[in-house]
Design a protein around this nucleic acid. Structure first.
Length: 209
DNA sequence: CTCCCGATAT
DNA sequence: ATATCAGGAG
């Protein structure tokens, strides 16, 4: 077997993680947008620690737009790339105010005009905050697991997403991403994949990635 | 392709 | 001590 049957993978993921959600804490679409921008090359766990205090200080686009950039930088520092990220979340907050009436836009085209937002971030917000099947979340976990299981032979997120979207009915898109993240984070781990305990073991070609 | 940066696993 | 992890912009 050189590739796992993706429908079967999704079926099993449904059983294992029926309510799979992205693990970023948020109360509003704006919070999820900010949290996801901060999640670039950073674990969700660390983002949640940072956003807890961040959202207490800056709960909405207006307060974040008005913040001192230096304060923002200090607040998001533990997530890495803090200067870039502080600028991105403040820039995004200002764009929301100026162009979208203070609301997070609900289309891929609009979302990806925001600083710090490409397809992965846009998909997280559109899928999780609005329930819009804009695409499939492809983060490092989905990419790695997808490659190991032979669900794609590409290594760029956008191409991987295309392969997955082509192979899966739209109804499965929003579930598949977060469920694959869980599989990747706890079983099909980057460093030491736990194949012996993997529910996909019998259908996985185990490609080296 | 390089740069942005910090935390944890080994 | 050092490798590895985690997306987007320019």
């Amino acid at each position: 077997m050189d590739r796992a049957p993706i429908q079967e993978v999704e079926q099993r993921l449904r059983v294992l993680h029926p309510d799979a959600r992205y693990e970023l804490d948020f109360e509003t679409p704006f919070h999820l947008l900010v949290a996801t921008i901060l999640a670039a090359r950073c674990t969700d766990e660390r983002v949640n620690k940072v956003t807890k205090t961040l959202f207490a200080k800056y709960p909405d686009p207006q307060s974040m737009a008005d913040a001192q950039l230096e304060d923002l930088e200090e607040d998001v520092r533990p997530t890495g790339s803090y200067k870039t990220k502080a600028k991105a979340i403040q820039g995004a907050a200002r764009e929301l105010l100026v162009r979208f009436g203070g609301q997070v836009p609900q289309t891929m085209a609009e979302m990806t005009t925001l600083p710090g937002v490409a397809r992965k971030t846009a998909n997280v917000v559109l899928n999780m905050a609005f329930g819009i099947p804009s695409g499939i979340i492809v983060d490092t976990h989905v990419a790695r697991v997808g490659q190991r299981m032979g669900l794609t032979r590409h290594d760029k997120a956008e191409r991987i997403e295309e392969d997955l979207m082509r192979a899966l009915p739209k109804d499965d898109w929003t579930h598949f991403g977060p469920a694959m993240v869980l599989l990747g984070r706890y079983v099909c781990k980057a460093r030491a994949p736990q194949c012996a305990e993997c529910p996909m073991d019998d259908i996985c070609p185990k490609r080296p990635v």
